[in-house]
């Protein structure tokens, strides 16, 4: 079942590299074409902090196995770095702040939570989503703007296609689509069928780049979603409904990210009820690395 979807396996060993690549494309598109230039200094902060924090955490975790000055340590640590980059990219794409300290804190929190907030060897919170939520709703000095992407069709289709490729490669398209369909259907029912807005009103609210980038690059993270296929679909629908409710009735910007973080504590519950095999990023050569992290 799992191997059927891994048809591209021979070409690349790790789908996370692709994910970082696509996120970078979106970031460059946003910075250059959509003129987010004023916050580009944050990118360096996020990336550097995420990587350094990850290295420190790895060093601490493996202190009995290998030391950072040994080649073996690096052999164990380097394969995990794309995860840190994905986290940093997620922050770059969503989180705006004028304070370097908040940027650093958000990235640090996301990464450390990945190592230290764990249940049965699986981390609970999506690192970038946690960083965003903490920075926006706890400090009040950072913000998320869902309007930053505009509504260009090109990015709509671009995000869709690129996103599908990434997610397919790690066989997690189910959760993205469950979320996206729920959110879009709920928006359609409320906006078009109930409130009777014209259809372009509805299109404007669902074609935003923020929603698509969230669906394909944030909620799709296989490490922080339930393992069982049915549980995954249900959980995706829950995030979609909560996100829709927070957005439409509580007028919260960046509602899907908040919904994701609020619902992630329920993932272990789903895993307890429906047992299934654990996802591994890169099963063949790196499996023992994760075994170390998990225990």
């Amino acid at each position: 079942m799992r191997n059927q979807l891994f048809f591209m396996q021979p070409f690349t060993p790790d789908a996370r590299i692709f994910q970082v690549l696509f996120q970078s494309i979106f970031l460059i598109y946003g910075t250059v074409y959509l003129e987010w230039a004023q916050r580009s200094w944050l990118y360096a902060v996020y990336i550097a902090t995420a990587i350094i924090t990850q290295l420190i955490c790895e060093a601490w975790l493996r202190k009995h196995i290998a030391k950072p000055w040994e080649a073996r340590w690096w052999k164990l640590t380097l394969p995990g770095l794309p995860s840190a980059l994905i986290t940093a990219m997620g922050l770059c794409l969503f989180l705006q702040t004028n304070h370097t300290t908040i940027a650093i804190a958000a990235a640090m929190l996301g990464i450390t939570a990945k190592y230290f907030i764990r249940i049965r060897g699986k981390h609970i919170f999506n690192p970038s989503a946690l960083g965003i939520v903490a920075a926006v709703w706890l400090t009040g000095e950072a913000w998320v703007n869902p309007g930053q992407w505009g509504n260009g069709f090109v990015q709509f289709s671009g995000a869709l296609i690129l996103g599908i490729i990434v997610v397919t490669r790690v066989q997690k398209l189910d959760i993205s689509l469950a979320f996206l369909f729920t959110y879009i259907a709920a928006s359609f029912i409320r906006q078009v069928l109930y409130l009777q807005w014209p259809s372009d009103f509805f299109y404007q609210s669902v074609s935003t780049g923020t929603l698509l980038v969230f669906s394909f690059f944030m909620i799709s993270d296989p490490k922080t979603t339930p393992d069982h296929p049915i549980a995954r679909i249900i959980w995706g629908i829950m995030v979609g409904l909560l996100g829709f409710w927070l957005h439409s009735f509580e007028y919260i910007n960046g509602a899907p990210v908040l919904a994701l973080v609020l619902l992630q504590p329920f993932v272990p519950l789903f895993d307890m009820i429906c047992r299934s095999s654990r996802f591994q990023w890169n099963r063949l050569p790196v499996q023992h690395v994760h075994a170390h992290i998990h225990h």
Binding site: W143, P198, D200, S205, Y251
Partner: peptide
């Protein structure tokens, strides 16, 4: 502009 303008207050004081 199919939708009304929606705003938010940000902490951005630049």
């Amino acid at each position: 502009f199919p939708q009304d303008l929606a705003f938010q207050v940000t902490p951005n004081r630049n």
